[in-house]
Design a protein around this nucleic acid. Structure first.
Length: 275
DNA sequence: TAACACACCTGTTGGC
DNA sequence: TGCCAACAGGTGTGTT
């Protein structure tokens, strides 16, 4: 599921459902998920109130009374909220029970997701050390810096855009959409892009992710009743998952290739490789 | 430093 | 139908 628009949708859902709640009990059934140590995690969270729910790139940040809980959903992580009884499910790995009897449950089939509990002053260093780039907004995502970084790299542009240090939030679905919108071939070397193409890529990134947020993210391989899984962005995708279908711009068949190990969809007519 | 392979896990899909 | 390989929306680590 989760690229930036999906994580933002989850953030909004969490804010609505658990902001102001106080944690009474925490149960972790898959300890390796909690990177900062499961015992202190469960202990430290007791009595903490969820004050704000924020997001940085694809990371969720739960600001608590004394700590910040950083949650990354990776490939399949999702949150469920149960006002009363919690059903049994072998993929429920972390359960936060609140003082009012409700429960927030983290579910993750592939167990790739991570949680970390940090002090509030450690958050900035955390993202710097992970080299998380600017948010994909007009204000944060500067063209000049983007141009500079691309000029230094021979990497295929798609692989480069997936690197979160360039800009935070793109994943395999939205990156294909961004390249289609900017009419850039996914395998084009970063440093061979024209100034116009680079500017178009920046603009497309901002617009595609904004649209994704507006549509509540995309729901592919849906699990109902999970927070943030009610999006409609899948109805607006132009190339991702459209192999063999007509390009919305020129009617040429969309093709799928492997690039950097990832399924990559593009229009061979609109997105031509140069150099 | 950069670019790539691989590991982490489980479920689903498509080919034979 | 059964089996099995390939694939699935991400990122951290290790190796060239």
């Amino acid at each position: 599921m989760p690229e930036l628009p999906e994580v933002e949708t989850v953030r909004r859902g969490l804010k609505r459902l658990v902001k102001g709640k106080v944690i009474e009990k925490v149960k972790v059934t898959y300890a390796p998920m909690v990177k900062t140590g499961v015992d202190t995690f469960c202990q430290d969270l007791i009595g903490q109130e969820i004050e704000h729910v924020e997001r940085r790139g694809k990371y969720l940040l739960l600001y608590l009374t004394d700590f910040v809980l950083i949650s990354h959903l990776r490939m399949e992580g999702k949150y469920n909220f149960f006002p009363e009884q919690v059903p049994t499910n072998k993929h429920f790995h972390v359960l936060f029970t609140f003082t009012d009897g409700s429960t927030l449950v983290y579910q993750d089939v592939r167990k790739f997701g991570t949680m970390e509990l940090l002090g509030k002053s450690d958050v900035e260093v955390y993202f710097i050390s992970r080299k998380i780039g600017p948010e994909p907004s007009e204000e944060d995502f500067g063209l000049e810096e983007f141009v500079k970084k691309l000029a230094k790299s021979k990497k295929p542009i798609k692989s480069h855009l997936l690197d979160q240090s360039l800009v935070a939030g793109l994943g395999n679905i939205y990156v294909d959409e961004v390249l289609f919108r900017a009419q850039v071939h996914p395998a084009q070397a970063s440093q061979q892009l024209s100034a116009e193409q680079v500017a178009d890529l920046r603009q497309a990134t901002i617009e595609v992710l904004r649209l994704g947020i507006e549509k509540g993210g995309s729901t592919i391989r849906t699990y109902k009743n999970a927070l943030g899984m009610d999006g409609t962005m899948q109805d607006y995708l132009q190339v991702y998952g459209k192999t063999g279908q007509a390009c919305p711009r020129c009617q040429t068949e969309i093709v799928k290739i492997q690039l950097g190990g990832r399924g990559t969809h593009f229009c061979p007519q609109c997105q031509v490789k140069h150099g």
